[in-house]
Design a protein around this nucleic acid. Sequence first.
DNA 1: TGTTATAGGTTATAGAATAACATATCAAGA
DNA 2: TCTTGATATGTTATTCTATAACCTATAACA
Lengths: 170, 170
Amino acid sequence: MTQTCPPTPPVTPIGFARHDHHACIEGTVAVVAARCAAEGLQLTPVRRRVLEILLERHRALGAYEILDVLRDEGLGSQPPVAYRALEFLTRHGFAHRIEGLNAFAACTHPGEDHDAAFLICTGCGVVAEAQPDAARAALAQTARSVGFTIRRSVIEAEGLCPSCATDAQP
Amino acid sequence: MTQTCPPTPPVTPIGFARHDHHACIEGTVAVVAARCAAEGLQLTPVRRRVLEILLERHRALGAYEILDVLRDEGLGSQPPVAYRALEFLTRHGFAHRIEGLNAFAACTHPGEDHDAAFLICTGCGVVAEAQPDAARAALAQTARSVGFTIRRSVIEAEGLCPSCATDAQP
DNA sequence: TGTTATAGGTTATAGAATAACATATCAAGA
DNA sequence: TCTTGATATGTTATTCTATAACCTATAACA
């Protein structure tokens, strides 16, 4: 039951192609739920819902955008509710903070506590999580050469996804 | 007249070794002034002073930390004063915004409007500007493979500089 | 049963950034 | 000289982002 996902185009875990968005959401939530069960973490209603909200939009959302949804649904009305859920999700690698946007996005391969690289489309707002390995390795090499020890790295690129780049051509 | 630079240790443009901090500041300001003259940009008192403040500290400063200094010196008291100067400096490549810290640091090789990579020491707060080429190239390669066009990239690493890493060893 | 750990509710405030409007300065051109 | 446009600054108010602090609820467990 493949279908499109308005209003923003769907993306694959690392690309920008169409995909089955419902399955994507349900599958990811199931994976996260399983990991939480396995590790003794509590995927409470608020935490689960925030994850779903991030997955539904498939783009980076500010904490207050998320809070608006929670408020409409009676799940919480004050900022700490959203921030606590986001802290849980990011701490366990189920979501990521996008520094360049002061916003959050669901992780597309949840599980390991990991840094990631992000491709952020300034046209449609979609955020794709990319393999950070090559860029991370290059950065680590640079750091090593000056004796710096990396603990956490932020790698984000803003630009245009294939579809928006095409639209921009007259 | 080489000297040390309390309270934070000095850094070279890309490393963390000691260097002549006064010469570093004066030299950089002179380079920036020359570039402004050449390009018809106005390095006004506030803009020059903000650049000096960033250079003196040699670490990332929040806009409100900078504003405190400006206020003490009678150069401005409201947030837009600091933000406008920072906007000028970052737009022309004389300073950089550190996304991971919501803060700003002087550019150590001012001039070209360029992205950079940063090594941020969580021990002493020093920010070193590193060569981003290798990491940027790797990221660009990743982006190209999914059809994404990069316009701006953020590459930042948090960790320990050589001196703080040594201190951390018991 | 009490104790501890974890999660959520609520109030208040801190911290970062900008919108909007008023004023000043100066150079180029009528 | 006047005035017009561009640039920079001054000021007020507000928005957006994030967290501190304190209190309550619940579940696991000694």
